[in-house]
Design a protein around this nucleic acid. Sequence first.
DNA 1: ACATTAAGTGATT
DNA 2: AATCACTTAATGT
Length: 210
Amino acid sequence: MIEKLKTNYSYLLEPDLLEEIEACSILKKVEVGGVFIKPGQYIKSMPLLLEGTIKVSRKDTEGDEILLYFIEKGDTCAMSMNCCMNNSKSQIKAVAETYTELLMVPISKMDEWMIKYKSWREYVLISYQTRLNEVIKTVDSLVFLKMDERLMNYLQDKTKIFHKDTINITHEEIAKDFHTSRVVISRLLKKLEVKGDVILYRNSIKILNL
DNA sequence: ACATTAAGTGATT
DNA sequence: AATCACTTAATGT
């Protein structure tokens, strides 16, 4: 049995199911920045995350992107489950934020397991619930928080993902996630630095108040 | 040494 | 908060 499957899912799913998952799924590895779900694409298998973090975003007709949530190991992408089940096109884009390993489970198994395994039903339900909560969180921050607060949230999220207080990112890249220009981000970061929340370097930012 | 890219800043809307 | 125009600083060749 794949150890990562066991360590990340054994507390969620029953042993029989884990074996079935292993038997019928394909292991997929995605490098940093790899796009593995594109908007408009049909999804024929659903991913279980073993290692790494994935950024899920919504893309509108031309270019504009909005960050929905991050998924980490033990999670699955509720949106792709949704697409699997009613065989519709993907509404989202999924990019590997770090090096990532996934198990791709064929959708044909989904229905079967829903009936057969209680833990699977619960897992699916809980996934939906936590994803929905994540989305609510990002909507909240979008609507209620000021830009500088949003930035700080974002930076703190990043440190959690990379388990480091210094993250490698350019102002330009942040600006893309925030739908704004690089100049604005540079200025906000400068403020945060003066306040003593961060230290700025070239190509990286150190977050202080964790 | 030179070109390229990231970041800082003032002025304008 | 966005855009422009320009400067300064870091990094690669």
